[in-house]
Design a protein around this nucleic acid. Structure first.
Lengths: 190, 190
DNA sequence: GCGTTATCGTTTGAGCCCGTACGAAATGCG
DNA sequence: CGCATTTCGTACGGGCTCAAACGATAACGC
């Protein structure tokens, strides 16, 4: 059971709620499916290959990035992994505690920190990654190679649009107003 | 700046690491782009329309589900929203605390609980949803309507494959072995 | 009736997640 | 040289996340 009501059913309900307001339905369906697919895929990976290795999705991605690119400054690891630098601090601590990752400060610039895999981390990735790729093949089993390329292409267009024009767009939306600060987050010392 | 290294660069690095092992590269690119797109899109929404309303992505999705479908049993809300029932308990508590959502137990079955929007929650959604849809249009601006339909189609195939055959696949992978229990989670009382 | 089993939502524990605040270090500039 | 500004990584606060454990309720079998 997919558990999700059909796009058509959802669209009908939305129309009933907001029939008067013109909406972009194709874009709505595309965006909501991106998120559904991402959740489904992530959950499958966590419950298949990653569970056995005691890795979460994020910790796997962090290991993967460092594994592929070699020793790296933390800021770039965070960027590649798609998480904030604050989150990376915690994840790296967890992985270092398990002996999979090593951290040292940059020899020439005291502000920077470097991450690299330990031998054990390297061994783990050599074991886990092929299994991970096999699951990528599994979830995309209903698609031809050509369809996979199309899918990757369309998604890349969305990523590029969002990341390249997102800042500008958000400024435009605010139109001079102060951005609402996040409710959580560290409080000033005073 | 997208901050992501190109697919081609990544592929080259992976080949260097695992040249001997045959890998599925089209599927790899498709899956990783799903996740990149989902993160980028979510972040844009949280920092544009949702921030002003003091909603996180998840709390918005929960409100949206209840808004569209009306009063609903919590198990279905969690399923539609794509989160676990335990997570929903917390999110619903937060939203109820803000006066956007109401919770009551089912009149005929004492095990069930029902959620519905308050008047304030209804008002908020009527204001936020059109703005949300406008951002869906923004992130998909580089795609034609036809491309959006194609994208939604391909993604739906992945969702269906993962959700319909995932359980079976995971059993197959374990092949009789005990599934590794999650490290976190509640401990037995004894 | 009455015990067993199934099915809810909630609790719990460990971890991820973000953005803000902050201190250390490096750079820019006068 | 010395001070201001920038740029790092980390600490922190609040919230989301999951799965396993749990208690309450309901359904089933006899």
């Amino acid at each position: 059971m997919t558990g999700y009501r059909s796009i058509r059913e959802t669209e009908k309900a939305v129309r009933a709620k907001l029939g008067g307001t013109p909406l972009k339905y194709e874009q709505m369906a595309a965006v909501s499916n991106i998120y559904r697919a991402a959740s489904a895929v992530r959950q499958h990976f966590e419950n298949s290959v990653l569970r056995g290795a005691e890795l979460t999705w994020t910790s796997f991605v962090v290991l993967y990035v460092v594994w592929i690119w070699g020793e790296m400054e933390t800021r770039y690891v965070a960027e590649e992994a798609g998480i904030s630098k604050g989150t990376l601090t915690g994840v790296a601590r967890t992985l270092a505690g398990r002996g999979l990752l090593e951290r040292r400060s940059h020899p020439d610039d005291g502000r920077l920190a470097l991450l690299r895999l330990t031998g054990e981390g390297e061994r783990l990735m050599e074991e886990v990654f092929p299994a991970f790729n096999a699951e990528e093949a599994f979830v995309a089993d209903g698609l031809t190679d050509e369809e996979c390329r199309t899918l990757a292409d369309l998604l890349r267009k969305i990523v590029v649009q969002t990341e390249e024009k997102g800042d500008e767009r958000r400024l435009e939306l605010l139109d001079g107003a102060d951005p609402t600060p996040r409710r959580s987050g560290r409080r000033a010392k005073g």
